[in-house]
Design a binder for these strands. Structure first.
Lengths: 170, 170
DNA sequence: CAGTATCCTGTCCGATACTG
DNA sequence: CAGTATCGGACAGGATACTG
């Protein structure tokens, strides 16, 4: 997962993919959201090879998603603690959980989200913070932001002619 | 991106990662959500090699995310149309756009989401559909669903002792 | 326990050439 | 235009051994 070279891509979706796009990274973050912080916890949970885990943790730390914190000297021991940026990734994980449950769990989900204090099951849905209206492929579209490059604007203009987006059932 | 072999993993997040985890797949879906359907549209937009694009489109079609539809005979031409399952992936993309904008767009976003009819900018936030309360790492947790395996229950029980999850600023 | 160091394999991916 | 075929490189990822 590196794009050509150099800085992150302009598209925020592509930048996200480039930062956490290796699939181990997503699963590591999934576990970190549950409270895991230690090397061995991740390793046991994921069955990942230790060198790969070290690589992924380093990359996520370099990306500002984990903070590597010394919790013991002699011997030196580190734990990997989510930063605010890392914790803010939770909605992406939760959206994936929701999609997976809706489309793969035929006989009922194996895992779902619940409120920490009440224990009540949560049904994740993405809405606009102001209107609280659901955001989906029918009602939302991408538009150029203030910092959009000319190329980005051109792309988006090209795409604007295509709406409404085609779908298989009409 | 294939796990060992065989069926999808039990965890809905892992199942999602396995299905769309290659980073090209996410970007293809991003473009499909904008209305792209043709091979050449994807290729030009992404700068992807044709063989890779063919592979990814085939995989996404086999996964029930695209429907490959003949839109012209002589010569035979196909377009790749999102299924309902594919369109339902939009919240994941939008959540990634939101995270990318919040953490990478220092001088303002290059791309944002807007309402199709009003054009008003949208601020994507994940909430519970019943309570409309935001779902984040502090308030939500994963619990075993009705179809959880014993191993999954054991994992989640292990994790339950760790809450509240550690974070770098307290 | 928490990694680092090596080696190896699979495959993702790009480049290019070719076809109806 | 919409792909398929083939080649080669880079690297993700696994297995194993080793260290403080």
């Amino acid at each position: 997962m590196q794009f050509k070279l150099g800085p992150l891509p302009e598209c925020p979706c592509a930048a996200t993919v480039e930062t956490v796009g290796e699939w181990w990274s997503i699963l590591i973050l999934r576990d970190a959201m549950q409270g895991f912080t230690r090397f061995e916890q991740f390793q046991r949970s994921l069955g990942i090879a230790p060198n790969m885990l070290a690589r992924r943790l380093k990359h996520l730390t370099d990306s500002g998603i984990f903070e590597r914190r010394l919790y013991s000297t002699r011997p030196a021991r580190h734990e990997y603690v989510l930063t605010e940026k890392g914790r803010d990734f939770f909605p992406v994980i939760a959206a994936m959980v929701g999609w997976g449950n809706r489309h793969f769990a035929k006989d009922g989900p194996a895992l779902l989200l619940a409120d920490r204090s009440s224990g009540r099951a949560l049904d994740p849905v993405l809405v606009d913070s102001a209107s609280l209206q659901p955001i989906d492929a029918d009602t939302a579209m991408a538009v150029a932001g203030p910092q959009a490059s000319p190329q980005m604007r051109e792309r988006l203009a090209m795409v604007a002619a295509l709406r409404p987006i085609p779908s298989s059932n009409g």
